[in-house]
């Protein structure tokens, strides 16, 4: 189920990208899409009844950890998402400076 929720989130992001005309809202849509994606990645590593993949003094002998790889991947994906978002926002500011608006429809022929 979790995966399907993630896909719904992904589609929500796509929907936003399709319909939104505001630069900031487009960036937000992009973020929603990325969150959906990250959720999906995490969900791929989940096993029912799996433990968090950390060795502690209470870890049983043959621990059934969840898959740690997707968690590591998602960390990378999140950071990359942050980088893109920062850049997108900086561009949004540039766009605002240039056109005086954030709405794509009001920018003329560009």
């Amino acid at each position: 189920m979790l995966q399907f929720a993630a896909i719904i989130l992904l589609m929500l992001g796509l929907y936003g990208l399709l319909t939104q005309r505001n630069v900031i809202k487009i960036i937000i849509s992009l973020n929603i899409l990325e969150i959906g994606l990250n959720l999906f990645i995490i969900s791929v590593g989940y096993f029912e009844g799996g433990l968090a993949p950390i060795f502690t003094s209470e870890t049983p002998a043959n621990p059934n950890f969840v898959d740690p790889l997707p968690q590591a991947l998602v960390l990378t994906a999140i950071v990359i998402g942050v980088g893109t978002t920062a850049l997108g926002l900086a561009l949004a500011r540039k766009i605002y400076q240039k056109y005086g608006t954030l709405n794509l429809d009001e920018m003329g022929e560009n």
Binding site: L10, L17, V23, I26, L30, L33, E34, L37, F40, I41, V44, P70, L73, A77, T84, L87, G88, L91, A92, K94, I95, K98, Y99, L104, M107, N110
Partner: peptide, 24 residues
């Protein structure tokens, strides 16, 4: 042309997200 670069960024990000989804 910040708007064009923005378009590029959106397209590129969506593209690489799809790549990642497929990969996962």
């Amino acid at each position: 042309k910040p708007l064009q670069t923005f378009n590029y960024l959106v397209a590129g990000t969506v593209g690489s997200s799809l790549y990642l989804l497929g990969l996962i």
